[in-house]
Nucleic acid binder design. Sequence first.
DNA 1: CAAATAGTGTCTATTAGACACTATCCA
DNA 2: TGGATAGTGTCTAATAGACACTATTTG
Lengths: 244, 244
Amino acid sequence: MAEDRWTPPEVMLAVDLVILTLRESLLHVLLVRRGIDPYAGAWALPGGFLQHVEEDITAAARRELAEETAMEAETLHLEHLGVYGAPHRDPRGRVVSVAFLAIAPRLPEPTAGTDAAGAQWQPVDRVLSGGLDLAFDHLRIVEDGVERARAKLEYSSLATAFCGPKFTITELQRVYEAVWGIRLDPRNFYRKVQRTSGFIVAAGPDRKGATGRPARLFKAGPQQVLNPPMVRPVSPSNSRGSEQ
Amino acid sequence: MAEDRWTPPEVMLAVDLVILTLRESLLHVLLVRRGIDPYAGAWALPGGFLQHVEEDITAAARRELAEETAMEAETLHLEHLGVYGAPHRDPRGRVVSVAFLAIAPRLPEPTAGTDAAGAQWQPVDRVLSGGLDLAFDHLRIVEDGVERARAKLEYSSLATAFCGPKFTITELQRVYEAVWGIRLDPRNFYRKVQRTSGFIVAAGPDRKGATGRPARLFKAGPQQVLNPPMVRPVSPSNSRGSEQ
DNA sequence: CAAATAGTGTCTATTAGACACTATCCA
DNA sequence: TGGATAGTGTCTAATAGACACTATTTG
C-alpha cells in the first residue's frame, strides 16, 4: 500500500470536552471564552492540544477535565463522543479533535485563578437555539453530546452520574426531566426505577428536607446497562440517524 | 493557554474499517493479510493512512471501503466507530486510527488484482475467540464494532443494511439471528417487524423460492430509529459498560 | 397428495401509564 | 391542624412471547 518513499501527512491532535451538569433543574454545559485568535471572544468547549507526542488521548481529556472542574477526574463519568476533523475546521492547519462527553454532579462555580477562569455554565437550551456564538464546529459537538446523553439515559445508568454519590429518587427524576425536557409521573417513576434491577441500591439513612417526609437515599447500583430500559416518551418524528 | 513559541505535537492519522456481512447465515468480517512490517503475516483490518493532509477522514474511509469491496461506497452503511490512539500501538510512531463500522450486503468474493487481493471474509466467532492473530489493537476494534452492530439492531434499522435493496422478512430475521447469535420465533418476528412503523415497506411482487409459498418483498423504510425497538432477549449478566 | 416455506389468529402473563390513596415530616 | 414531600395500591389498555393454525408454492 505505502510506496517506498511516501510518508503519511501529519495532523495536530486536540481534545474537546462537552461537560454537562444540572443547575436549577436545567441542563448546562461548560463553556470558556476564547482569549486568542482564531475566534477570539467566542465561546468554546474546554479543551486543547495534546501536550506531547506520547500523551494518551484519554489522559489528555482527563487532564483538561480536572483543570476545568477542579475535581478528581477519576470520579466523573467520561466517555468518548466522536472525532471532528474536517479539513478546514481550524484555520491554523489540520486539527483533528477527539471529543469527549463528561457528566458531572453539581459543581461549585468555575474557580478563578485556574485554567477555568472565564469558564461558565451555560444553559444547553440557549446554546442549542443559537443564542451564543461558538467557535469552530463546537455547536455541532454540543448537539452530539446532548443527544448522546439523552439516548444513554434510556438504556444505561448514566443519570446517576449527574447526582452526587448519594441521591433521592426525586433527584434522579429531575435528571431525566431536565435532560429529556419533559415531565414524568413521580409515582410511576418511583416504581419503575426500583424495579430495574441493579440500577440503584439503598444507601444509608433517610435525608430530611426542609419540609415533607424524609426521602430514602440511594447510590448507583452495579448495572451499567439497564434492562428493561427507561423509555423516553415517543416523539412522533424521526431523528437524524447517526450515519455520516 | 498556548505559550508563545510552543507548538503542538503532530501525529499520523489512519482509518480502519470493520466491514461486516452475512455469509451462510454467519456474521463475517473482512480482514487482510499484512505483507509488510510491522506485523507482517498477521491479519488486519482494511485501512490506511490519510493520503494527504487535506483529505477528509470520512472520505478516506469511503475510499478504503470502495477499494476493498469494489462497490459504490455511497450505497453502503458507514458510521464512525471510535478512535484508537494509544501511544505505542504502532511501532512506527504515534499513529491515531479512526475506526469505522461498515455493513454490507452479501458481496462477491474479494477480487484479486485490486487492493483487496489477500482480503478474506472471516467468521466473527473465530476472530473473537482468538483463533486468528490480529495486528495492532485490531481485535479490540473488531470487538467494539460487533458490539456496536449488536446494540444498533435493537433501536435502529441497521439490519436492513445487511440485506440487498429488496429482501424478505425471513432474510431480515436471519440477520438478527446471525448478529445476535440466537434463534427467534418467525411468527412473532413477522408481526413485530411489520408493526414497527417505518421500519420496512412493501416493495414489488413476491419472490418465488425453490419451494414453498412465495415471500413478499420489502425495502428499508424511512425510519432510522425504531420505535418501539426490537428487543434482544435478556442475558442475565451485565456487559462491560462503554466507559473508559 | 406431501413437503416446504410464508403468513395469520389467539391466548396469557407482563408491563406502561393514569390516578387515588396513605405516610411522615415541619410549623 | 395544614402544607409539603415521600412512597404505595390498583385499574386498564397495550404488548411480548408461546404456540396452533391456514395459505401457496413445487414435485
